[in-house]
């Protein structure tokens, strides 16, 4: 794949849970180094979209490519078949996922959380992994908390450990699912600061967020989703500050009133 091809390509993605159609044909390209924010009302399918990208959720239609590689399936004799656990795991290494509720491993220290995947998945030695892990924890401002268990960390610190855990895998693409919405207001800033720093490093990021100001400052593009579809997308200054679609306008107005 050439440098000009998108890093992430989503083609006509559909997902239904029984009768409920949560994604109704989403197509989206994200270039290398691009920062894309996804906004939209609760229940519009943002989380499901992110979960489909790393195949925590199996799409019911459409395809996802990262760096030209199909995610979660492969073509065998013209037909699409699901990947084995092992093949799928290999693809997921490339995709970092930051969860709304952190999902740190409570039985491991901060350093343990950050090193377990590099050791068990990438096969790094403990020394290499710990060196990398300390570096990542330092990067998110938690160099002094390496031996702390998640239980003893604040929400903001936990989320920063979760980000460090993802960074230690050196993913091509980072997905953030409302990384700050489970946090007390005074802890949001420290997490957004780290995310902004990552954005400045030129990483490819897809960020689901309700932090409109942050998304305006950080993203190259803002996507507004509603009812499982992309309603409007474009540069932040147009989507956020001069939306064309009535539904986008209504949503933004509603956010401001909160």
């Amino acid at each position: 794949m050439g440098q000009m091809d998108p890093l992430l390509r989503i083609v006509d993605l559909h997902k239904r849970f029984g009768e409920l159609e949560v994604l109704a044909g989403v197509s989206l390209d994200v270039k290398r180094g691009e920062k894309v924010s996804i906004i939209g009302p609760s229940g519009s399918g943002k989380t499901t979209l992110l979960r489909c990208i790393n195949y925590l959720e199996k799409p019911t239609g459409g395809h996802i490519y990262i760096d030209g590689t199909l995610i979660g399936e492969k073509q065998v004799g013209g037909k699409f078949v699901h990947l084995s656990d092992r093949e799928l795991a290999k693809e997921r290494r490339e995709i970092g996922f930051v969860f709304q509720r952190f999902n740190l491993f409570p039985h491991l220290t901060a350093l343990g959380n950050v090193t377990i995947a590099p050791i068990k998945v990438l096969g790094l030695s403990r020394e290499e992994a710990e060196a990398r892990g300390r570096q990542m924890l330092e990067k998110v401002g938690l160099g002094h908390k390496v031996n702390e268990y998640p239980e003893r960390l604040s929400g903001g610190q936990q989320q920063r450990v979760a980000i460090a855990r993802v960074l230690a895998m050196q993913p091509k693409l980072m997905l953030f699912d409302e990384a700050t919405s489970a946090l007390d207001p005074e802890l949001i800033g420290e997490v957004l600061r780290v995310m902004r720093q990552l954005a400045d490093e030129g990483r490819t990021m897809v960020i689901v967020t309700h932090e409109i100001q942050f998304s305006g400052e950080v993203s190259d593009r803002v996507v507004f989703m509603d009812h499982g579809k992309i309603v409007e997308q474009g540069p932040p200054k147009s989507v956020l500050f001069n939306p064309q679609q009535p539904r986008t306008r209504e949503f933004l107005k509603h956010l401001q009133e909160r």
Partner: peptide, 11 residues
Amino acid sequence: GQMEAALSLGM
């Protein structure tokens, strides 16, 4: 979420 976090890290 524990299983999902582990899977998302490539396990």
